[in-house]
Each structure stands twice: as structure tokens, then as C-alpha cells.
Design a protein around this nucleic acid. Structure first.
Lengths: 135, 135
DNA sequence: CGGTATCCCGAGGGATACTG
DNA sequence: CAGTATCCCTCGGGATACCG
């Protein structure tokens, strides 16, 4: 009953009359999933809790600036929690919150789908680009 | 076997050595899901095939420019197909391709998750912002 | 009807340097 | 170690006008 059919009905609701897109529930999650680093960080933390520098190593090519910003956003939305240990030098551990776990589940499926269809997508893309050339 | 555990192992692979992020399978899908309109268009087409103007009405506030661009990208990646009928005036129908269906499934789950946790996320956000105020 | 072409702005995000 | 601060530049995407 919370299957595709029910959701598509709900989705149809978003198109009725004057729906406020800025308050669209999907955007809250999609905006996080969509930005360049959030999903990578989320999946990394799903594997195991990590410290700032650990994440920095685990997610290749992310800058400290973007890692901080990504972590703040995820923390703000309640997806992860931040734990400071008063050691010297200080260490901070990030963990997936319950809310984070619930979004990681479908995210894992999505990435799994990406894996499975990677080759097909690349082929489709090459075919499309080749056809575009002959015009 | 294609569950979370297996995927997390695969994910760990992305972090070994010199992984080429520009060829990351996840990006192909995540980039489409992430942009402002693709997921909305995909979900609309999952409900039923539609013509250009139909989509323009179904997805509120999207401009013709962005709708065209979104459709082209989705077509390029093989998520949707484009069918031109030589009527007068011309009519074009867009349909979800098999590849599109496979990505819509996890997408539906993700949006369902967004729906379910919408309130919780908003609360977490308000709490975070309130705490930030007292500093 | 189903698009293109052009202009333009603000946000996302990289590079680098500094700090408690 | 775990961040901030600053600079700067690309590019997503809105507005508008035109076209077959």
C-alpha cells in the first residue's frame, strides 16, 4: 500500500492547483542526494562511523571545505550526528543517525541500480552522440 | 547477494588507489537524480507516457528550455524514448524506456522515504538552527 | 505544437592559506 | 586534528524572444 501505485497517486497531488514547490518533501531528500558529496559521505558512514580525517581519506578528492559543509548540512537535517571527544588534539566522530539509515536504504538500491546499468547507460549515450553527429 | 553488504564492499573499492571519479557508475545516475527536474519528469512518465506540452503542464514551474534540456539528457542516457508523430501540428510523445523503469523503482522508494521523514527532517533542521542561534 | 537562441545572474564548489 | 576564511570562476538554470 506504500508501493509505487500509492506514491504515484501522491505525486499526482503535487501537480494539483497551487502546490508549493519550495516545501516539496521530495526536495529535502533529493537535494542532499543530488549534491556532489552527500551521498558518498552517507554511504561511507553507513559502512562505519568515521572521523573527519577518515572521511577525508575515504572520499577521494573532496576538499576540507566541502567536507565540512556537507557534514554540516547532513547534521542539520538529522541524517548524521557529531560527537566531539576532548582529547588532545581533538577528535570528532561522525555517525549515521536513524534518519540517515532510512535514507541510506533506498540510496543503496539506487547506487546498485547505477552499477547494474552503467554499461547500458554508456552505450546509450555513445549511440545518441553518434547519431547526433550524423545530422 | 546484491544487498547492502555487497554494495558497501563495492563502494569500498572506489576508495582504493587511483579510482577515476569521472567514470564513477554512481555519478551517472546520481547526476540525473540530482538535477532539479529529471526525477520529476521521470516520475511523471512512470505514471503515463506524455507529450511535451503535457509534461510542461504536469511539472509545474519548469520552463520549456529546461524541459527540453532535461528530456534530451534523459533520452541520451537511454532512460526515456522520443516518438514523433507527423501530424499537423506535430506531436511528440515521451515514454519511459526499460532503463528508465529500473531507475524509477529505487527513486520511488527514495521519494517515499522523503515523504515519510519530511516532518522529522524539518524538526531536526529547526532544532539545529535554534541551537546555532544560541552561540 | 515543440522546440532554439541569447542573455544573464547567483549559487556551488575548487584552491589556497590560516587557526585553536 | 578539525576545521575557517577568502578569493574566484564555472555553470545550472531562469527570463525572454524567436522559429518551423
Amino acid at each position: 500500500m506504500s508501493g509505487p501505485t500509492a506514491l504515484l497517486a501522491t505525486f499526482a497531488e503535487w501537480q494539483t492547483a497551487d502546490f508549493d514547490i519550495s516545501n516539496c518533501p521530495a526536495r529535502d531528500v533529493l537535494d542532499r542526494v543530488g549534491d556532489k558529496w552527500s551521498s558518498l559521505v552517507l554511504l561511507t558512514l553507513a559502512a562505519s562511523s568515521q572521523r573527519f580525517s577518515g572521511l577525508n581519506r575515504a572520499v577521494p578528492d573532496i576538499s576540507k571545505r566541502m567536507l565540512t559543509q556537507t557534514l554540516r548540512n547532513l547534521e542539520r537535517d538529522g541524517f548524521i550526528t557529531r560527537h566531539v571527544f576532548p582529547t588532545k588534539p581533538p577528535s570528532v566522530e561522525y555517525r549515521l543517525a536513524p534518519l540517515g539509515h532510512s535514507v541510506v536504504e533506498p540510496l543503496v538500491l539506487l547506487v546498485g541500480c547505477a552499477q547494474a546499468n552503467h554499461a547500458a547507460i554508456r552505450e546509450a549515450r555513445d549511440r545518441f552522440d553518434a547519431d547526433a553527429q550524423n545530422s
